[in-house]
């Protein structure tokens, strides 16, 4: 297991100080998508705008950013 930090950058920047253990980076990325969708859903429920450029950054214990997950990659719209 490896410790990864999921840091949020949207209307507020929120650093994940505790971090969590994941099997690998792919598992952390899957969790980042789930977390982003949860925040997007809350915005939608309250009629708040969703900025598709907001992002979650996955960093290792040294703070090195390993992967960026943008909100726009987490939701799909059909017209």
């Amino acid at each position: 297991m490896t410790l990864y930090h999921l840091n949020l950058f949207n209307d507020a920047d929120v650093w994940d100080e505790e971090g969590r253990d994941f099997v690998n980076l792919a598992a952390a990325e899957k969790e980042a998508v789930r977390n982003a969708r949860d925040i997007i859903a809350e915005h939608i429920r309250h009629g708040l705008p969703v900025d598709l450029n907001d992002r979650l950054e996955i960093a290792d214990r040294d703070g090195t950013v390993l992967k960026v997950v943008r909100f726009g990659e987490c939701v799909f719209f059909k017209r």
Binding site: L6, R34, N35, I39, E42
Partner: peptide
């Protein structure tokens, strides 16, 4: 809730 979402709420 997801942990990142809760972090955000805690910060607010």
């Amino acid at each position: 809730m997801t942990p990142v979402h809760m972090n955000r709420v805690m910060r607010a």
